[in-house]
């Protein structure tokens, strides 16, 4: 069995199983606790919980004015690499085929050269994020191993993907195998670290949305 066969076969299978199992475990495990320790006594005319939750999810997409200056880098850079990752993951044809293979869903992709460009920007943005984390006293204090590991496991697929597409450093199939293995590592770690915010942010934002919504307060 070649490295690529291993990556595409057992490694990917195991990683996806761990990913799904872990992610469902964590969501179910976290959210099947009592939902309301403090019952609602909503203000008259307050938003309905559903609307308030939705509002919470969307309002949190951009910082309030007083935080815009200090948080500019965090937000803009965050957007750059999140959108970059989304574009690379969701609009590169080989990736679409991968998703199609799993889910049956299909949509058109973007030209590869454009994807390479976005991936380079994404990688640069991730590096900038790491440098920021390493230099900020606040982030130094609150960062944990999880933060660095999650960063690494997000960064590696971007780098190995770029190397594979540009055939740099080794034979293509080796690079492709490494790329897939790096994604396996990403998927395996995903449910256990902060990468889960990709799913959990909805609940967190939504719950604060409901809490503040019933009070008629801003989010």
């Amino acid at each position: 069995m070649t490295l690529l066969d291993f990556a595409r076969g057992p490694a990917l299978q195991a990683a996806l199983i761990i990913f799904v199992l872990g992610a469902v475990w964590r969501i179910v495990g976290a959210l099947t606790a009592p939902w309301r320790l403090v019952p609602a006594n909503p203000r008259e005319g307050a938003l309905s919980p559903a609307v308030a939750a939705l509002k919470g999810v969307f309002v949190k997409m951009w910082p309030h004015k007083p935080f815009q200056q200090a948080g500019l880098f965090t937000f803009v850079n965050g957007y750059v690499f999140h959108f970059g990752l989304a574009i690379v993951v969701l609009l590169f044809t080989p990736h679409i085929l991968f998703i199609k293979g799993l889910t049956g869903l299909n949509w058109p992709g973007l030209p590869s050269n454009l994807i390479y460009m976005v991936a380079v920007i994404t990688g640069a943005s991730l590096i900038a994020g790491l440098v920021h984390r390493l230099r900020s006293p606040v982030l130094q204090l609150i960062s944990r191993n999880d933060d660095y590991l999650s960063w690494l496991l997000t960064f590696l697929p971007v780098v190995t993907g770029l190397l594979a597409t540009s055939h740099l450093g080794a034979r293509y199939e080796t690079l492709l195998a490494l790329h897939i293995l790096s994604i396996c590592a990403f998927l395996i770690w995903f449910p256990f670290g902060k990468l889960m915010h990709a799913f959990l942010f909805v609940f967190s934002r939504g719950m604060t949305g409901v809490r503040m919504g019933q009070r008629g307060a801003e989010l």
């Binding site: 976290a30 606790a33 320790l37 948080g71 944990r144 933060d147 915010h197 942010f201 609940f203 967190s204």
Partner: peptide
């Protein structure tokens, strides 16, 4: 409960709260 769980599980350690 679920509320504390959703909150404590979601932090990405971005440090924005310091600025507030």
């Amino acid at each position: 409960g679920a509320v504390a769980a959703a909150h404590l599980e979601s932090c990405v350690r971005c440090g924005m709260c310091a600025e507030a």
